[in-house]
Amino acid sequence: MKVEGLFTVKNGNKKQSIKNKFVESGTEALILPMLIIRSTANENGYGNNYNIEIGSDTTTATEREMVSLVNSISNNPDNTSIDVVQNDDEYYVKYTATWDSGSVSGTLGEVGINLYIPDHTNVNSDYNPQPPYKIGWIDSFVQLLSRICEADGDFTSFTIDETSPLVIEYKLSLTYQV
């Protein structure tokens, strides 16, 4: 199956949809659930405390070891939502973050999404047999999954129009392939 991530950025008269670049820390979690046999406590989904983050860096390309944005604009969004959707052979989860007019300002040069996913360095085992339980939900914390930025040529940085809301959607999709 094919996995893709797509950011859509809306602000004023601007609207751009841009494919992300994945980083290492978040991707392994895609197949980790297969190893879990049981939940015996309150376990949060990967979307718990998710955060779509914006930053002003315009010169640093995305690297696989990256764990955070380069120069984050710290304002948290005013509203967030999450949903799961099926559209024919495409199955996706959609995260939406909205900053109200005037609540964020500056140059937008990078965007990332952080999810509540396991510590991949802790579950790595060099392919040795593992106790088949609770793997994947241990030591979870908020980590960067993917990023778009001007330095990668994904989009041209712009000054946020404070008279309009800034809305960023992130769609993580799995596509059924015949």
Partner: peptide, 30 residues
């Protein structure tokens, strides 16, 4: 070839809420 349930299960892990609450639930590899 994958089935729909496999795809729904994997992407479902990315949703927001709790996987489980209060007592044992058998999932995935059990």
């Amino acid at each position: 070839k994958f089935t729909e349930n496999m795809i729904k299960g994997l992407i479902g892990c990315y949703s927001k809420k709790n996987i489980y609450f209060d007592s044992r639930s058998d999932i995935w590899a059990e």
